[in-house]
Amino acid sequence: MWKPISSAPFDRELELAVLDEDGEHALIFPCIKEREGWKNAATHARIDVHPTHWRDWVPDTIPANNHRSLTDSL
């Protein structure tokens, strides 16, 4: 179940939903919220994203090529 980004916890691996020039989709890598912004959980690199929703990251269950609309699961 997707939750509003305003409730995203800090220091935990999360799956993020973003809205960009390609439409709405889930990122294919886990992210961590920090006071300074978001980072890729695997590389620890900062990322410039503006997520709309989050849910707990569940390893190995997120398909790498997910073309479903997020509105199908919101």
Rank of each mutant, 00 (worst) to 15 (best):
N66Y: 08
T43D: 04
T61H: 11
E21R: 15
N65I: 11
N66I: 01
R46T: 09
A8P: 02
W54E: 02
S6T: 12
E24I: 08
S69H: 12
T71C: 06
F29W: 14
D20Q: 07
K3H: 12
L19F: 12
S7Y: 01
N65F: 14
P9M: 06
N65Q: 09
P30F: 00
I47T: 12
H50F: 09
L16Q: 03
G23N: 04
N65Y: 15
H25I: 04
G23Y: 05
T61Q: 15
D22K: 15
P63R: 09
P51A: 07
S73L: 11
D56T: 08
R35I: 14
I5Q: 03
T71V: 11
E13H: 07
E13Q: 11
A42P: 00
A17R: 07
I47M: 09
T43P: 02
H67Q: 14
I32M: 11
W54P: 01
R12V: 12
V49M: 04
L27P: 04
N40K: 04
T61V: 12
H53R: 13
R68Q: 14
D48N: 15
D56H: 08
P59K: 07
D20L: 05
L14I: 05
D48C: 07
V49Y: 11
A45N: 13
P59W: 04
E21N: 11
H50G: 07
I5G: 03
T71K: 11
D56Y: 10
H67C: 08
P63Y: 08
R35S: 15
C31Y: 00
W57P: 02
D72M: 10
A64P: 01
I32H: 02
P4N: 11
S7V: 03
L14F: 02
W38N: 04
D48Q: 13
R68I: 05
S73C: 05
P59E: 07
K3P: 01
S69K: 14
D20G: 08
T52G: 04
I47R: 05
I32V: 14
W57V: 06
D22F: 12
P30K: 02
R68S: 15
W2A: 07
L74A: 10
K39I: 14
W57Y: 08
L19V: 13
D72A: 15
E21S: 14
D11Y: 10
T52P: 00
M1D: 09
F10C: 02
V18A: 07
V58S: 08
E13I: 01
R55G: 02
R12L: 11
P4C: 05
W38I: 02
R55E: 04
M1I: 06
I62V: 13
D60A: 09
V58F: 01
I47D: 05
L70S: 01
E24G: 12
G23I: 07
P63K: 14
G37I: 06
T71W: 11
C31V: 04
P9R: 08
E13A: 08
I47N: 01
S69G: 10
A45E: 14
S73Y: 15
E36V: 09
A42Q: 10
W2Y: 14
A64Y: 05
L16M: 09
I32W: 01
T52Y: 00
D56L: 12
